[in-house]
Amino acid sequence: MGQLLVNGLTTGLILALPALALALSFSVLRFANYAIGSYVTVGAFVTWWANVALALPFWVAAIIGSVAVASLAVSIDALVYRHMRERSGLTLLVASMGVAIALENVVRLFAGNSPRSFDVPVARPQRFFDIRVNQEQLIILITVLGALILVWLVFRFTRLGRAMRAVADNAALASVRGIARGRVIAVVWALSGGLSALAGVLIGLDTSIEPQMGWNYLLPIFTAAILGGIASPMAAVAGALVLGMAEEVSTLFLPPHYRMIVAFVIMAALLMLRPWGLFGTKWVQR
């Protein structure tokens, strides 16, 4: 049981980053970015390239990957989404799917279809009271907690964070009060891209790196964000942890390849019963 909790926590922590990234961009821009899965993939591959091809230390490579995808997300916004700001959310949705398809296949074009892994030393798993915790899980725990605390500090205590919350709350009012919406949006995309890339690195550490990886995480990411209440970024983290636990516990009575179905059933039940999420306020977009 303890082992199950540790594994569930790991799954949840990995999901927390992209779920936060998705909710962050949704709360400010009011559209669900389907390209988030491809940001995860690109982040993992850039990091792999820096780590294996350039032989840089793993953590340096991870920073390079995150910065690369953060700038990628900002440029995609400038190239694509900015021209559609005033259109309906549905148009943006379809455009983001186009971005996702293009990016995933750019990765395929350069890296091929075979799975890869990072160049990190293999370490023996540690044991705490009969619970096996391997080194990857410790790295995941520390990285995710660090990233979350950083985002929370930015969100809560800086002018920028206040500006972000203001734009998320009421964009028109915020711009009347002199908040530069464009800059806030750029920062949100940078954060969103960086967090997704980091998630890609951690997924690659936990399992393997392949072009399909981000796509496979799309449904769990959305489910986690909806669980938290998609417009409230920090609640998405809680949603991710709940989903991670649920997926892990489900392996007791379902084969592990059906985790995606667990995520889907949870999402369906939630949308019918509590569409504003487990933790979100009773706000809902009809």
């Binding site: 559209f31 959310g89 949705l93 449904l219 059906y258 995606m260 949308l271 569409p275 009809r286």
Partner: peptide, 23 residues
């Protein structure tokens, strides 16, 4: 499942359903 909500939710519901059917 999502018909009472805004159309954006239908997009992820259908995608999730399709992936589950494939599995």
């Amino acid at each position: 499942i999502s018909i009472r909500l805004s159309e954006d939710y239908l997009a992820i519901v259908t995608l999730g359903f399709a992936e589950c059917i494939r599995l």
